[in-house]
Write a protein that binds this DNA or RNA. Structure first.
Lengths: 342, 342
DNA sequence: CTGAAAGCGCTTACAG
DNA sequence: CTGAAAGCGCTTACAG
């Protein structure tokens, strides 16, 4: 216990004194790839351990003009899919000694402030997840060469890496599955204020159905729920299933919560059963989809791969800021449960 | 555009030059409560705006030996209740210009490293949520006078503030509700490796039932699921409800996921309906509880108040490190839905 | 490999 | 109220 540090914070100078070396030697011991003799390193480590020394990341980051912090910007915290992304993101950042600095961007106005706020910490990069508002502000990041990676967003910003699930193929898969199991009156259910992901899912669905529709073998309708939420799906059931004589027999929902809402709405409001009365396919494979109360057939996104890729993009761009921007496309998998027929 | 800063990072010196003042003046302009004349402040702000200057928080925090970062330590990311806490915590931190640095502590071994890692950022405090492993390491925080606040944990560490929902009263409320609605064969369902919260809930339940049990008006059993999860509840249904002649008619579950699992297990495995065949009460009021597929009667925790209080404790202790530690108790509310009778 | 020195961008007594 | 100066804890050429 050095009495001159009642605060308890030990500095490199303390360690240097105790180890009988220079501050430089201490610094080198804790710097990846710096040249220190084994003996010096040993002495320093022993002293550091005894004193409980830890590098002050604030000082190190200041010098290096870059911290180990990565901004993670999410829109609200109540979307189950986004929630499932948080764990893997944290995990994969940790594997590279990076730590997530969380930011909420529920309001677009807030986003600008949040992004600017993050800059004050000289963050190593930022990850924007789907749903977050459009960001002209990414421009500022690009100018400052702060790596930006986006998950499930339109790849429309040069210099920004984006990692997407293959929403288009997912939508097409849903179409083929429903068709193959006999559905003919098909609906794509999403919401008016939709996201990029949902839009592309719909496009894949529509396109895969085009031929069948053309030759009159199937019909297709697009229906907008009041929101891409459980409540939105629940309400949508009321209108969508009202007409007894012209009910859809296959509904592809832009995401799982919407689908679960639809299923529950159909049960409560019309006593309809899935898949007996109509089939439903969702998207995401959130925990809710697997509950025995739903058994939702859905397209699973690989959240771990999504997170890992986004972090990898960030890391590579940290090493090489000017590399051309990439767009990764990750496969989705059909998970067949109870709401669709074989 | 100052050509001597191709990197884009503007420093206080740049602003000072442009505004024709000293670096001290710039610093004061951006320091709460520092004395600057309105004219100087004006000049500085104009220059800062023009240049796009922002304080380098890394440097400021280094000087002040404290950052605006608060460590938020969670155990895994898949507990719905903990997920619902993340938003409010982030929100209330932001209101005080603090930002959450996320840390996963799924493995106890990891926790020690994580907590030490956080120290490197000279965090302003740390919030430990329920479920995180026991932390002797909090000792190190106390020594360094880093404020620690815990949510839904045993208040057994002097110097650490803890904010709890009133689990005991919640359990008691569940007991009274079931009793009043005619249940007589009661069960408390939790899991063997339980948390502090669950334990106290059970105690409240048991105590409120004691008199009735004593005079033979009710029976009480404690049943351990394999885990406090949906799957745990689902499995528990099999054993718990097997004996046709001695089925419980009222089950209080340590949390909502467990309760939903039980309800689904009862449906699938025995075709039992809730509340017709037996009543169920959960705890937390996570989104799942409100789904029409469950309509779970439950005790709602006030996540916003929990988060706000924890952040407030942290802030107050930042101002006064040596204040005696507090234990706050926040009320829970019975939310009556379909799984219990009036 | 090593240490003395300069410097990162800021804040904070200090003297005026 | 203001500026020159010292100092925070670190890293990094630089010279040896």
């Amino acid at each position: 216990m050095s009495t001159d540090h009642p605060s308890g914070w030990i500095t490199a100078a303390d360690v240097a004194r105790k180890a009988g070396v220079s501050r430089s030697a201490v610094s080198r011991t804790f710097t990846e790839g710096a040249s220190v003799s084994p003996e010096t390193r040993e002495k320093v480590q022993r002293a550091a351990e005894a004193l409980g020394y830890q590098v002050n990341m604030l000082a190190r980051s200041m010098i290096q003009r870059q911290s180990n912090l990565v901004g993670v910007v999410v829109k609200g915290f109540d979307d189950p899919f986004l929630q499932s992304l948080l764990g893997p993101i944290t995990h994969h950042l940790a594997l590279r000694s990076l730590a997530p600095l969380l930011m909420d961007a529920s309001e677009p106005a807030q986003l600008a402030k949040s992004l600017r706020h993050l800059l004050q910490y000289r963050i190593a990069g930022v990850i924007l997840t789907s749903g977050t508002p459009p960001i002209q502000l990414a421009q500022e990041y690009l100018r400052l060469r702060v790596p930006v990676a986006m998950i499930n967003r339109a790849p429309d910003l040069e210099g920004v890496d984006v990692v997407n699930s293959d929403h288009f193929e997912g939508g097409a898969l849903a179409a083929r599955t429903l068709l193959a199991s006999g559905a003919r009156k098909l609906v794509f259910l999403s919401s008016a204020s939709t996201t990029y992901s949902a839009r592309v899912r719909g496009e894949g669905f529509v396109q895969a159905l085009a031929a069948a529709v053309q030759r009159g073998a199937a019909s297709l309708r697009h229906f907008d729920a009041s929101g891409a939420t459980y409540a939105g799906g629940f309400e949508a059931a009321q209108t969508l299933l009202a007409d007894t004589h012209n009910r859809p027999d296959g509904v592809f929902c832009a995401n799982d919560v919407l689908a679960c809402g639809l299923v529950d709405g159909a049960r409560r409001q019309y006593g309809l059963q899935v898949p007996a009365d109509f089939q439903v396919i969702g998207f995401d494979d959130i925990p809710m989809a697997g509950l025995s109360a739903y058994g939702l057939t859905t397209l699973r996104q690989n959240v771990d791969a999504l997170a890992q890729s986004a972090v990898a993009c960030l890391a590579e761009r940290m090493a090489e800021p000017d590399m051309p921007s990439r767009t990764l496309q990750l496969p989705v998998a059909l998970v067949t449960r109870a709401t669709s027929r074989k």
